[in-house]
Design a protein around this nucleic acid. Structure first.
Lengths: 122, 122
DNA sequence: TCTCATTGATTACATATGTAGTCGTTAAGA
DNA sequence: TCTTAACGACTACATATGTAATCAATGAGA
């Protein structure tokens, strides 16, 4: 109902599924090589995501194929708005300012932002 | 050095202290009226923040006066970069796009962003 | 057909977090 | 001086999260 909360570890699993699905648990674990988690851990995260309604399953033989049940944009949008509200009263500028300061935005980033602003003004 | 992690509830306490300090626990609780927490809860949060090194104390009589030990910008900057990295590979534009879509940015917000972009370009 | 590796289900356990309660001490008022 | 209210310290307990291990069933290979 209320968009499920997806933890940081769980988000890595979602990222795999958003890129490619449906996938079996083993395939997901394999694609999460960088995380250096055991298969067990990945399965636990998958179970929790299914429980939360963020991931759906289809039986295939004796195992499941997993797919996202929520869209990436929905999740990232909510997280972004939540952070902006919590830290800056919903204002975007200070948020961007932090990004700019920390590691510097690339020229591409700036150009993209500019285009976005132009669009917002119309 | 390891910037302490500050939870959402703790952040409300920090916000009070960033606005005004030093303050005694009772004053902080009073200023957190909106949260509808018991004094106990506020004290627990304060203890945890002191433990984490995010808040400092000065004894005053038999009680403490609390003050922030980390700057707001440091904390918000870290949280912002963390979110941007986690969700968008550090890119600012999709983040702003979400804010724009969700509730619409005010004209002021947009103007502010524009000014910021102009500055970044120079 | 028999064995075993793999799968989902269940259980485990430490730390973080939200939200308090209890206790011993002490300053301040009666 | 005696009492009490308030303070910090310590304790409590449920849920979320990170990170697995165990268990029972079963399909695939010997």
């Amino acid at each position: 109902m209320t968009l499920p909360n997806i933890s940081e570890a769980e988000m890595h699993v979602m990222d795999v599924l958003w890129r490619e699905h449906p996938l079996a648990a083993a395939d997901i674990a394999q694609r999460l090589d960088a995380q250096d988690w055991s298969q067990r851990t990945v399965k636990t995260l998958l179970s929790r995501l299914v429980e939360k309604g963020a991931v759906g399953t289809k039986p295939q033989g004796r195992r499941f194929l997993y797919s996202p049940a929520v869209e990436r944009g929905t999740v990232t949008g909510r997280a972004t708005r939540h952070l902006a509200d919590r830290l800056f009263g919903g204002r975007a500028a200070p948020l961007v300012a932090h990004l700019a300061e920390g590691k510097g935005l690339s020229d591409d980033d700036i150009a993209e932002l500019e285009a976005l602003i132009a669009e917002l003004k119309s």
